[in-house]
């Protein structure tokens, strides 16, 4: 064995400079990303007097959660002064079904497109992929008309429908690409055993799909929760999602700009996606890189 310390390039000036360069770069990137979060977090914990005194980058003198309480339950959005809470609940009621339904439909269609290759499966898949590239703005008008026609305009149900439809392209893509690596013989064996389309899906494919289900859930939850345009266009008043409410809260401050409440509200609105990612994130990376099913 060669001693790693004596190999060319293992030590000396060039090595040191290389390391220094890398560390500096990483440090700069970290500051760039974490700086704004630090400012938002520390501002949300200050009172207004402290904020007015300037010193944006200072730590708060004491941990003061008044702004958080206000943002959650008493800040005024338009004429209602109930804080973000009702809108946060709206977002939960909107996200959970749209994530669940779009993931389930994506799994089913991905399974049909990859393991039950029927005539024209590739064309259908290509058309579904196309859906991933349609910008939100294009569909707003026809979508509004459709929702009106169906009688679910200005409702959370309407948003659930919109997000489910919009998400199917992505979830189908995920599941189809995952199932392509599942051996065809598995389906054949199950067919010989007497299982049909849905029983193979339920007993064999879904249990194999945990990694890609996690990917689909994280992706869809982030998309649906953070979405603003559909929420702003298709709902008003009490049925708005939290993203729209956050915008209104910040814009409807009457006299003094309450930066601490705004910051706390922003953090509250962003928290769920962070929590989902922290809980399931390692599956996310694993699900994106893995795919092969080891038998």
């Amino acid at each position: 064995m060669a001693n790693p310390k004596t190999l060319p390039g293992a030590n000396g000036k060039r090595y040191l400079f290389g390391r220094l360069f890398i560390w500096t770069l990483l440090l700069a990137a970290a500051v760039l990303y974490l700086g704004p979060i630090y400012v938002v977090l520390s501002t949300s914990l200050k009172d207004l007097a402290e904020i007015r005194a300037g010193a944006l980058l200072d730590l708060p003198h004491e941990l003061n959660f008044t702004a958080w309480r206000e943002a959650w339950s008493s800040a005024c959005i338009g004429v209602r002064c109930e804080g973000l809470r009702p809108y946060f609940l709206n977002s939960v009621i909107m996200s959970v079904p749209s994530v669940a339904i779009s993931t389930l439909i994506g799994a089913l269609s991905g399974y049909a497109l990859s393991l039950f290759r029927f005539r024209g499966a590739n064309i259908i898949f290509a058309l579904m992929l196309f859906g991933c590239f349609i910008p939100f703005q294009i569909v707003i008008l026809p979508m509004a008309q459709t929702l009106g026609y169906l009688g679910i305009a200005n409702s959370i149900t309407g948003l659930i429908v919109v997000h489910t439809i919009y998400g199917i392209s992505f979830t189908t893509l995920f599941f189809r690409n995952y199932y392509v690596s599942v051996p065809q013989e598995l389906v054949r064996a199950a067919t010989m055993d007497g299982a049909g389309f849905f029983r193979i899906f339920w007993h064999i494919m879904l249990p194999l799909s945990v990694p890609i289900i996690v990917v689909s859930v994280i992706w869809q939850f982030t998309q649906v929760w953070n979405e603003f345009l559909f929420g702003a266009s298709f709902t008003s008043g009490g049925s708005q999602p939290v993203t729209v409410a956050l915008n209104n809260l910040i814009n409807s401050t009457t006299s003094v700009k309450q930066y601490n409440v705004d910051m706390a509200a922003a953090l509250i609105a962003a928290a769920p996606t962070l929590v989902v990612y922290i809980i399931a994130g390692r599956f996310f990376v694993r699900g994106l890189t893995a795919g092969a099913v080891k038998g």
Binding site: P183, E185, L186, R188, A189, A190, T191, M192, D193, G194, A195, H203, I204, L208, V293, K294, G295
Partner: peptide, 16 residues
């Protein structure tokens, strides 16, 4: 499934 036939596959195709 109605032919009363069983089959053994090259990759065994066991349900993982």
């Amino acid at each position: 499934k109605n032919r009363d036939i069983a089959m053994v596959f090259q990759s065994y195709a066991l349900y993982p």
